[in-house]
Design a protein around this nucleic acid. Structure first.
Length: 748
DNA sequence: TTAGGGTTAG
């Protein structure tokens, strides 16, 4: 049996020793190796001082670093005379700071060691350069590169590779300085396949695949063979940019070239399949993984889990959440890691199964082997909250984010919070999150603008847009979609047209089909149907379904049977299974009292197997969420809800409200139609909200489809006589009903 | 000591 001395047993004899014996340095070394806490290291330190064992100083520094006490290690190092052996410890300190991501500390230590007379060696530079590669500008990395050359390290292959890696990473961060970065890369004297791959990665990440090809050519000229890392880097680059099919092409090419894929290749490839919803290719990759990668003798379980996580993610993103869940359930809870949980939660959240996402999140929190959610998990949960407009839970998650300081390290967490608050009806809270952000990116700005647009606060959206440009951000295609959307939902027609016309000239963005769809929507909502049609006819590309849906919706809001029929027929040529378009057309006929045509649309739906999604509304109450379908009186509070609604309808009728019976799609008399309207899900939700919401507090209602015109009119009247603001989110935007008017101003 | 990877937001 092996006998090992514990720290305590050795320490007891050591600290009781009063005379110096030859055994003491040996015991000290043993103790230093066993130190796990700063207190233990301090105890040994005191004994070293008592015994005068100055030769033990470097071992002590090592113990302090191992115990994660860099301050003590640095103060000891500063008191030592520079030597080769002590550079090792500076390097160890710098390596630790790099691992922990403390970039400024890395550079501080690098400067400090030189100030105290130490010279960085061929171990120091790779660490420092790695930290420089993480910085947003390449200038500091370039200055370290200059030192590398000045000190004569340009012939060391490790240092040179680190220099190229640094430049490769800077390519991702500093697109505008690419030429200078490229010059720096060219200046490096020694290049082996590692450094070539570093640059291949850099160009792949920003989508400069023509530069990647040029590098391939140069590699061939230099007799450097592309290896699995080279191919994986290019596949990952395509996948991260959402170009899954290109990733698959590269993968095929790689196989033709005889390079064997590994775990990393498959993970990147699956990410590409997931990005484009390529289920069949994903399944093929799954088969390949089972045959050639997973559970092989000697394979790393961590690597296997990474592939399985990617498979779950791929299935979930390819609309196969049931298969994803089967795989998730097959992994023992002990073997799952935080990513396993996150991909499953995210898969649910993004594909309309937000309740399942939240259920799984709570299951994760209840795990025996405490599974701590990370910033990605929290983002997925916030997406689920946004989908459900679950403001109460969203606020709790926000508190978790603040407690764990997740928003300060991860910009995208704060972006998710902006999205959650604005989609849950509290745009002012979204603004507060935005204002408190220490760092923002383009998504932060556009998320806030989208929020203002959804709430009909177009002027504020445009103010944010101006602020964004003043802050130096260059708008992209998505930003302009958001600008046009905001104009459209606030009735700012002329401003919208102006922005659309100036896109190419002022922002260098060629309008895409999504921008044309926004403009059709903008003109359509404003009732300028002829101009909207003319725009579609003059578009330089073929209209997609969203363009025709925009026109069809406008024909419902501003009744036009003929144009509506035309839009619907063009839409059905492209997309025959859109239940929303059938409903819109049926509504157009109903408002013109063309009941035979209504019946014809119904029979077409039956014939083609298209089912109308039932209207569904929900209210976030104190005791959870209450969900209502049309005509659903099964709730325990139904009786009271009925009484409230009857009373309200009578009172608003006296104020001039006339039920808009064209929204009841049945060929029955008007009185009966009024009853049908009475049962719409949003009215039931409102009655429930009035019953359960404290006086003066807003009632938050969410509807899966667009709000019915009659319900909209009724809520406008009702908001005059109740002591609540009604905040209603439908599938298109927010409506804030206050004191007899709605924030949408008719642009819904 | 150096190269490639899974989870996120407009």
């Amino acid at each position: 049996m092996r006998f090992t001395l514990s720290f305590n047993s050795v320490a007891t004899s050591f600290f009781c020793t009063t005379t110096i014996t030859p055994a003491i340095p040996v015991i000290t070394t043993t103790l230093l190796k066993q130190c796990r806490t700063v207190i233990q290291a301090n105890l040994v330190h005191q004994q070293i001082l008592v015994q005068g064992l100055t030769e033990m100083a470097t071992d002590l520094i090592g113990a302090y670093i191992a115990c994660d006490a860099p301050g003590q290690a640095i103060s000891m190092l500063e008191r030592l005379a520079p030597s080769h052996s002590t550079v090792f410890w500076w390097n160890a300190l710098i390596r630790r700071a790099v691992r922990l991501g403390f970039l400024e500390d890395v550079l501080g230590l690098y400067r400090k060691m030189q100030r105290h007379g130490w010279r960085p060696d061929h171990f120091t530079f790779p660490f420092v350069l790695k930290a420089c590669g993480e910085l947003p500008s390449f200038l500091r990395g370039a200055s370290v590169h200059a030192v590398v050359c000045a000190k004569g390290f340009e012939s060391n292959v490790f240092v040179c590779n680190a220099v190229v890696t640094m430049y490769g990473r800077c390519v991702w961060h500093d697109h505008e300085k690419q030429a200078q970065i490229h010059d720096g890369y060219e200046d490096v004297m020694v290049k082996d396949v590692v450094s070539w791959n570093a640059m291949v990665t850099g160009y792949s990440q920003i989508g400069r695949f023509e530069d990647v090809l040029a590098l391939f050519k140069k590699m061939r000229e230099n007799n450097i063979e592309l290896n699995v890392v080279t191919w994986s880097a290019v596949i990952a680059g395509h996948a991260q940019r959402g170009h899954g099919y290109e990733a698959l092409d590269v993968f095929r090419h790689m196989q033709v070239c005889g390079s064997e894929p590994n775990v990393v290749t498959l993970v990147s490839l699956l990410s590409g399949c997931a990005a484009v919803g390529a289920l069949l290719h994903g399944k093929e990759t799954h088969c390949y993984a089972v045959k050639c990668i997973l559970n092989l003798e000697g394979s790393d379980p961590g690597d296997d889990l990474m592939v399985i996580n990617s498979l779950i993610d791929m299935y979930a993103k390819c609309q196969s959440s049931k298969v994803a869940r089967m795989m998730f359930d097959l992994i023992s809870p002990k073997c799952r890691n935080v990513v396993t949980w996150t991909v499953m939660i995210g898969g649910y959240a993004q594909h309309g199964e937000a309740n399942d996402a939240l259920e799984l999140f709570f299951e994760m929190l209840g795990q025996e082997n405490l599974m701590k959610p990370n910033a990605f998990t929290i983002s997925c949960v916030l997406v689920a909250c946004s989908r459900l407009a679950a403001l109460r839970l969203g606020k709790q998650i926000h508190a978790y984010v603040l407690r764990n300081q997740l928003e300060s390290v991860m910009v995208f967490v704060a972006n998710c919070l902006i999205d959650m608050y604005s989609k849950s009806g509290d745009i002012d809270a979204a603004r507060l999150v935005f204002d408190n952000m220490k760092q923002r990116n383009a998504v932060s700005w556009t998320s806030l603008m989208t929020g203002y647009g959804m709430h009909g606060r177009g002027e504020e959206a445009l103010l944010v847009f101006d602020e964004m440009r003043r802050a130096g951000w260059v708008p992209d295609g998505v930003t302009l979609v958001v600008v046009l959307y905001a104009c459209s939902h606030a009735g700012m027609v002329e401003q919208g047209i102006k922005y659309f016309d100036s896109m190419s000239k002022e922002f260098g963005i060629v309008p895409g089909v999504e921008h044309y769809a926004c403009l059709v929507d903008l003109l359509g909502r404003a009732g300028r149907l002829d101009e909207a049609l003319k725009l579609i006819e003059d578009m330089p590309m073929e209209p997609t379904p969203i363009v025709w849906v925009a026109l069809l919706s406008a024909c419902r809001t501003h009744p036009n049977v003929q144009l509506g029929e035309y839009a619907a027929s063009r839409l059905s040529e492209l997309e025959s299974e859109n239940d929303g378009s059938y409903t819109l057309l049926s509504n157009i006929y109903a408002s013109a009292r063309r009941w035979k045509d209504v019946a014809r649309v119904r029979s077409m739906m039956k014939h083609t197997g298209v089912k109308k999604r039932p209207g569904c509304s929900w209210v976030q109450g104190k005791k959870g969420t209450a969900t209502f379908f049309v005509g659903d009186w099964s709730h325990p509070l139904s009786r009271q809800m009925h009484v409230i609604l009857e009373d309200l309808i009578q009172r608003i009728k006296a104020m001039g409200y006339v039920p808009e019976t064209s929204f009841a799609l049945h060929d029955v008399d008007d009185e009966e139609k009024g009853d049908l309207l009475f049962e719409h899900s949003e009215k039931l939700a409102l009655a429930y909200g009035i019953l359960t919401t404290p006086a003066g507090a807003p009632i938050h209602i969410t509807k899966n489809l667009r709000v019915c015109g009659d319900c909209h009119a009724a809520m406008t009247y009702i908001s005059k006589i109740i002591d609540h603001e009604i905040i209603l989110r439908d599938s298109s935007r927010f409506h804030h009903f206050r004191k007899g008017s709605c924030s949408c101003g008719g642009y819904w």
